[in-house]
């Protein structure tokens, strides 16, 4: 995956670059808004990581200009402004996701990978997700494993749907709260973990191969094999 990181703090940018490279991505760096805009409009990227406060041209302005030039690349906005309202403003300007500084790298990586994968996904959303012998039918609202029906609560269904939609990709607890519950705060306690372990008890218990995995220090992933 080819990622453009527009961040004026050179040390932070290098640290993000290093992390993304280790995760197997190609990274370009831009240290101000003008260069960032130039690179975003002339090169093709899978994801742009965009700091909100930049010299020469701020992140939101860069984003608007890029979108006006038909740059459809998914954009993850980084900001020290943690307000929910700031977040709404960033998304309205054309951002696809919003991450508040300070963030953990695992959170950033998970979000970048989800955003990058979104590009390669078919335009029409799948109605049936399948991972190994686990099958989720969105229209019939039915989950089966090895043909055996698993009875899920509506929220558990949406949780599993989100995990399966991003099969093989790490999703963080915050991402689950944002996408499954539509709330944007740090729940602070283990509320999400308990939901996942309940889901796991229904989906994985009694089957030989576990499909919902915990990624230490990051979140969860649904995948086949270990």
């Amino acid at each position: 995956m080819k990622v453009l990181v527009v961040e004026d703090d050179r040390e932070a940018a290098r640290y993000v670059e290093k992390g993304l490279r280790e995760a197997g991505h190609v990274v370009d760096l831009a240290h101000d808004g003008e260069i960032g805009l130039f690179m975003a409009t002339t090169e093709s990227y899978d994801v742009i990581v965009l700091d909100r406060m930049l010299p020469k041209r701020d992140g939101v302005s860069l984003l608007k200009a890029a979108r006006a030039k038909n740059v459809g690349t998914p954009v993850l906005i980084l900001s020290a402004l943690s307000d929910v309202d700031q977040r709404v403003e960033g998304l309205r300007a054309g951002g696809d996701d919003y991450l508040t500084k300070p963030y953990s790298f695992s959170e950033l990586l998970a979000r970048v990978e989800i955003l990058g994968a979104r590009r390669s996904q078919p335009l029409l959303p799948d109605t049936v997700f399948t991972v190994a012998d686990l099958k989720l039918d969105r229209l019939a609202r039915r989950v089966t494993r090895s043909g055996q029906v698993i009875d899920l609560q509506p929220r558990e269904f949406r949780l599993l749907e989100y995990l399966m939609r991003h099969v093989g990709q790490v999703v963080t607890r915050t991402m689950l709260l944002e996408n499954v519950w539509d709330y944007h705060f740090d729940p602070q306690t283990n509320v999400i973990d308990v939901h996942v372990s309940r889901l796991r008890a229904k989906v994985d218990k009694g089957f030989e191969e576990p499909l919902i995995h915990t990624v230490r220090g990051a979140g969860y992933v649904v995948r086949q094999g270990d």
Binding site: V88, R155, L177, W181, N190, V191, V194, H195, R198
Partner: peptide, 29 residues
């Protein structure tokens, strides 16, 4: 007093139900 300008009409009952639903497993734990 920040954030006051973005106030809107919200259903407190719905939020309460969603939060209770979010915390229910943790409480049961």
């Amino acid at each position: 007093g920040a954030g006051h300008h973005t106030f809107a009409r919200v259903d407190l009952a719905l939020i309460a139900k969603e939060m209770a639903e979010l915390y229910e497993p943790a409480a049961e734990d």
